[in-house]
Design a protein around this nucleic acid. Structure first.
Lengths: 331, 331
DNA sequence: TTGAAAGCGCTAACAT
DNA sequence: ATGTTAGCGCTTTCAA
């Protein structure tokens, strides 16, 4: 009960392997009757073309290598969109995960062995120089991370704009004392901080500017909350949703009411922000567009089309939920 | 700047391809000096063996195909453990995701094309007959799902025991009016319901048995909560953590205090249960052991070792957090 | 429209 | 210890 090869199908259908290959690939150059017959046999034998053998000969794998981090719920959302986009472009995805015990280099190494035609990396933390080195031998698209060097393509959200939208929203509600909890050294953190600062400046609120050191985790948000409690602002924009939930938890524990005493805005529109009792106002990244752009860009590079610009910046969208409001003193 | 092949390495090192192959595989039969020289050249050229070509010739891929669902946070946790276990066994993982728009059959089809030596499927919902058909041509390990037919190997948590532990814990705290919100038709739901019922029976509490229809989502939990409010029990065990958070949200919204008025136990020890302000008592599956067992079993089948038993059932462990307590009336 | 033959990068059997 | 040869399953000329 060996798994059938193309030769088996060809023999059974009474044609040459070459012809069978033409049929299986849907390539032109085979009679309609033959086509039908071969396809029929293939179905009957449950034949599956061997991707690897196919690649080996054709030099093409039609494979996009994707590195993602299992710890990041947002990555998983992006994965969904990427499958769709790749399917539309006629490419397959091959996944390699980063885990607490599996480094980026390991994950990428596996993708290279798999002979992907391009690499799509979700918020890689590798030094830009290393990304550039990778990109010398194949197209590399970095998502959710800005890269200064022009060696790799980048698809990312306009994080400065996103933070700005959050501030605009809060100002529109009457807030002036708006703080920002940042994300430390993480990708996107500097941008989001900058967007906050620029928006505060634009609204003439630089006097109220206040930045609390934070991070990506719930604990980071909790710590930031503690720092905030001494001198509570009326609103705060937080690096991401998880950190925001940590912050929410602590301030509520101290009797602070949300949004009456404090408005909170997260970032990512992750599943946690949508939980009924969290119901967090947040900045949503445009996954559909980012994934489409990433695949388009990767394919354009693979197929050697001329493309303009390395840096694709997608605007985000504010999702207003229950953690922002006018606040007690504004009514 | 073509990527280097083994032939390039061999030429550069001044040896035959076969010998270079021996060195690269770490197979015996090469001089120490030669070995060093070849390895050196390989490193200099950044040579990476082509997994596919290797497999094509050797007939082995050392590849375990994994199907997981991006929507299930728990799957992602299991993935982490599986990478570790596979690494220890000298196997690589190839991942294929199920998404809202990518069915199980599609995901599995891709794994088959990749010529994995065995399939590891995370809570597959495919009919048992189809799993059996798959298993005819290669080993199949189903995780987190019971399968009656003895055609595939199964690694799963003793869900009945888990529910039982939850009930035991609640009874230990003095509760008698304990309800159960079930998971509908999902894998594990029947088992968890049974565990609840058996434990209630064991404690002589069948008179208080009460099962509310539910499901895996937050909304399902919210709906169940509504059904519960008319005649509130003092404790409830819920199908999974997400559903439990939905339930928590609604009952709290109605002024019910947790755990004073109602104790709640979830299932899965997922990241959401660990959030500070949820702090849900829950049943943790033993990921480390399950992944180790799954890989061991897959490899044993691949390498044709005799194994006893198809059904590996791993005991879970209750994680007590803040949503369970004695309750007001018991103090 | 069809088939014969070569070869992708590698491993395995055999010979030296 | 090292090289030679054949061939994995497929695609790709090229010829018929």
């Amino acid at each position: 009960m060996r798994r059938p090869t193309l030769a088996d199908v060809a023999a059974e259908a009474g044609v040459s392997v070459a012809l069978a290959s033409i049929v299986m690939r849907g390539a032109p150059g085979a009679g309609a009757a033959t086509r039908e017959r071969v396809l029929d046999v293939a179905r009957r034998l449950d034949y599956r073309p061997d991707t690897r053998a196919r690649l080996l000969r054709s030099g093409r794998s039609q494979l996009l290598g994707v590195m993602f981090d299992v710890r990041h719920p947002f990555h998983v959302d992006v994965l969904t969109g990427l499958y769709d986009a790749a399917g539309r472009a006629g490419y397959q995805l091959t996944l390699s995960a980063v885990t607490p015990r599996r480094a980026e280099r390991t994950a990428i190494g596996e993708l290279l062995q798999d002979r992907c035609e391009a690499l799509v990396l979700f918020s890689p933390e590798l030094p830009a120089a290393e990304l550039a080195a990778l990109a010398r031998s194949r197209p590399v698209v970095a998502m959710m991370r800005a890269v200064r060097r022009r060696d790799v393509d980048v698809v990312r959200t306009d994080d400065a704009l996103g933070s700005g939208q959050a501030v605009d929203h809060l100002v529109g509600l009457g807030h002036t004392r708006i703080a920002h909890v940042d994300g430390g050294t993480l990708a996107g953190s500097a941008e989001r901080r900058r967007g906050y600062e620029e928006a505060m400046g634009r609204h003439g609120l630089m006097a109220y500017r206040k930045i609390i050191p934070g991070g990506p985790g719930e604990q980071d948000g909790a710590r930031a909350a503690a720092a905030l409690l001494d001198d509570l602002p009326t609103a705060v924009t937080v690096f991401n949703d998880l950190s925001a939930t940590g912050l929410l938890d602590v301030v509520r524990g101290h009797g602070v009411r949300v949004p009456e005493d404090l408005s909170v805005v997260g970032y990512d529109d992750s599943s946690v922000s949508r939980l009924g009792h969290i119901d967090l106002t947040t900045v949503a990244q445009d996954i559909e567009r980012m994934t489409t752009d990433a695949v388009t860009r990767a394919v354009d590079r693979i197929e050697d089309r001329t493309v303009i610009g390395r840096d694709i910046v997608v605007p985000p969208r504010l999702v207003v939920r229950g953690t922002t409001g006018r606040g007690r003193q504004h009514r």
